[in-house]
Design a protein around this nucleic acid. Structure first.
Length: 376
RNA sequence: GGGGGGAUACCAGAGCGGUCAAAUGGGGCAGACUGUAAAUCUGUUGGCACAGCCUUCGAAGGUUCGAAUCCUCCUCCCCCCA
């Protein structure tokens, strides 16, 4: 994997660059639609690629390991062959799932014992296992096995957990170096900074992660319920320490405003379920603000979803029609909303990139943040 | 013509003397959702001057301290036999 910074903004830490992988080029900053089980819910890969114009998708080790199983995907020739997505893929390691699994998991010295959310069966995940499975899945970028701390989290636990993540990282790196992708192309391993909302821990973790010399670095454990200001503070702090010339990935973020603010702090990569999940639940992100399409006030609004929009559904469907689809529980409702939201997110990233290139990102961002988060 | 069953809030449907402004489901309305156990979950759904009061359980009378629940009568619906 190769990363080059092509432009830097005037007045913020934002940068525009390019990542080259064996499955193609990605222009940064970028947003990765989440396709947990190997597919972005409610979307064909053709729409993901040609309509939404996603450059890369994210998938999940935990889910694919449980079902259909890494062996099946490996026998298919890797995840790209299995799901038909020929562009880059990033897989998350399963650390976040173990966090969100709550009380059906427990930590051991070796790794994590957890129960499947599907059938309750017991499984053990270790750093080595996370690497082995991700090698078989064959994503272009794979993530270290970490522990995502909840919010709030006391400092003693956050420190202990961070140390564990660091320790696990070393094991991940060792295993990663001992193995190769069985499908014949290269993979990059990204380590993850933790440390909850404690500046000293974040600094310590960012330094440790930087020392690994990875091809890219991620920030985890944020956007788990802490105030946005705290998230920006931690992100800015960590960005100041992580290598400048490597891509920075802020995991799980976020709202359009969160993303623009984080780009300004030096983040290049994002993923979030918000455009897809909230879309399926009737929330539309638009250039003018947020719409809850199920609200009665849209019932006779025949204006297009987004008059200035460039994505297929924007002009094709009216608000009244989409509301009708949702109220009638038609499958097309979630499909339209997902397509629109992802198209919007990716359009927003493209615009951000353009502004960075022009060196005018800061002012544009201020205007957009206010506008995008309004409730319509 | 004879016999039987039933009418409950927007709909369906429990309740069968007090703890009932009335279970439950649907529908309606609103909210939540940030590395997806999510096409999910939560709240609300008679009125108001709202820790209380007022008007509701087909209509009208009645019994009772007290009725959606018991009695009388009226109206309408359904089933069976002829």
């Amino acid at each position: 994997m190769q990363f080059d910074i092509l432009h830097r903004d005037n007045g913020t830490a934002a940068r525009a660059g390019v990542i080259v992988t064996d499955h193609g080029v990605i222009e940064s900053p970028f947003f990765m639609p989440v396709g947990t089980a190997g597919a972005v819910k409610a979307l064909h890969i053709k729409d993901l690629s040609d309509v939404v114009k996603a450059q890369i998708m994210l998938s999940n080790t935990y889910h694919l390991y449980l079902r259909p199983g890494a062996d099946i995907i490996s026998r298919a020739g890797g995840l790209h062959k299995f799901n038909g997505w020929t562009k880059p893929i990033l897989t998350d390691s399963g650390g976040y799932q173990i966090y969100s699994l709550g009380d059906i998991r427990k930590f051991t010295d070796n790794g994590v014992v957890f129960q499947s959310h599907i059938d309750g069966s017991k499984h053990v995940f270790t750093p080595e296992k996370a690497m082995d499975v991700q090698r078989e899945l064959g994503a272009d970028i794979i993530m270290a096995f970490d522990e995502c701390t909840p919010y709030p989290c006391d400092e003693a636990y956050a420190r202990k957990s961070m140390k564990r993540t660091h320790h696990w990282l070393k094991r991940c790196v060792t295993r990663f170096e001992e193995t190769a992708c069985p499908h014949g192309y290269s993979q990059a391993l990204f380590p993850i900074v933790q440390g909850s909302v404690y500046p000293e821990l974040r600094v310590e973790s960012a330094r440790f992660i930087s020392g690994i010399g990875a091809e890219g670095n991620a920030i985890g454990g944020l956007s788990v319920g802490e105030p946005a200001g705290m998230m920006y503070e931690m992100t800015g702090l960590v960005c100041g320490i992580l290598p400048d010339l490597k891509p920075r990935y802020l995991m799980g973020v976020g709202t359009p405003a969160n993303i623009l603010e984080s780009i300004a702090l030096g983040i290049d990569m994002f993923d979030c379920v918000m455009p897809t999940r909230n879309g399926r639940n009737g929330m539309l992100f638009t250039r003018n603000g947020i719409i809850n399409i199920k609200n009665e006030k849209w019932k006779d609004d025949f204006s297009p979803l987004e008059a200035e929009g460039e994505v297929f559904p924007d002009l094709q469907y009216s608000k009244a029609f989409l509301r009708h689809m949702f109220i009638s529980k038609e499958i097309l409702g979630p499909m339209i909303a997902t397509t629109h939201n992802l198209g919007f997110y990716i359009w927003l990233m493209k615009e951000a990139r353009k502004e960075i290139t022009l060196g005018t990102f800061a002012g544009w961002k201020e205007r957009m943040v206010k506008q995008l988060m309004q409730r319509l």
